[in-house]
Amino acid sequence: MANVDNGFVRTATEIQKAKCRLRLAGREHNVLEAIILSTYGWNKSKDRVTNTYLARLCDLDDAAVSRALASLAKRKIITLEKQGIMKVVGINKHLDEWIYQREPQKKDSKKLVNFDKTLVDSDKKPCRFRQKELSETSNTIDSHTINKDLKPFSSQLAVARPDTEVATRVIPDAAVQTPNGKSWGSQDDLTAVQWIYKRVLVNNPTQNTPNWADWANTVRLMRQLDGRTHQDICALFDWASRDEFWRTNVLSPAKLRKHWDTLAARMIKGAPNQGGNSGMVDPEDTSWINGDWGY
């Protein structure tokens, strides 16, 4: 049974009133309450947290928490600062700055995918268009992807071709990508993973050349979903590559992402680094951009 004797959260009445008028998505609401608990619940106006800590409170995944934090910060409901690989969060006490209403969701036209001369809609159900309907959707479908002499469908759904047979879809911002565009990364993502590979070779000279698109894609997801910077990623990998245990267990961006919170906690606490060097990198050092960290 809940009892104030077991603890309570003291918040300003004006904040509670303002919350009543907020229009939030479910995950935004969860994360906002977790921030209040993590700050006012400990008599603090701000505190350092990780996505994983908030995710555990909200029973969400890290990516969902990262998106909710970005949305709440954009609406000026919370304050959000980065300190290395940690985040400092708090409630914005200037309630007149809050954006109470959510932005209206834009309704996208139904997306169509061309599977071997067969048009399938986003719900994976077969559909057939008349010439008039095709002309009305010409702004969203390249003319060369449509077979205008479509024949009636058989009882079976179309099967997508293997990736090796799918025509290349060019990602405008990609410096490297897979043919189907599912995995890709920017030039900075590629530079970062090339540097990571050099660090891997120091500990494992027989390491095979990686799939650059897959590695760069992981770094891109760490940036866009997890809120990391290239500097954060390279600094933590540098620390792991010098640790007696982790240098043989973290040999790729995917492993780094999987063990991020454990590695970050040990690095921040200054855990002994058996490689003879703490691996801490000057946060102002941007030499990684040129792939040169002095190794």
Score class of each variant (00 low, 15 high):
75 R>I: 09
233 I>P: 02
86 M>D: 03
162 P>F: 06
259 H>C: 06
216 A>I: 05
292 D>L: 10
128 R>W: 06
53 Y>E: 14
106 K>G: 03
289 I>L: 13
111 K>E: 10
164 T>R: 15
217 N>D: 14
295 Y>T: 11
57 L>R: 14
84 G>L: 03
13 T>S: 12
206 T>S: 15
72 L>V: 10
3 N>K: 08
71 S>H: 08
177 Q>T: 07
71 S>Y: 01
178 T>H: 06
172 P>M: 07
5 D>M: 10
228 R>H: 05
61 D>G: 13
1 M>Q: 12
281 V>K: 06
204 N>L: 15
218 T>F: 02
130 R>I: 09
44 K>G: 01
269 K>S: 15
113 V>K: 10
182 K>M: 10
147 N>Q: 11
66 S>V: 00
90 G>P: 01
166 V>D: 01
283 P>D: 01
106 K>H: 12
158 A>M: 06
76 K>H: 12
224 Q>S: 13
53 Y>I: 09
108 D>K: 13
99 I>N: 00
123 D>R: 08
269 K>R: 14
201 L>W: 07
278 S>W: 05
128 R>K: 13
279 G>C: 12
114 N>W: 04
2 A>P: 12
227 G>L: 01
39 T>I: 08
144 H>R: 13
241 S>K: 04
61 D>S: 12
111 K>G: 03
291 G>H: 08
34 A>Q: 00
201 L>T: 12
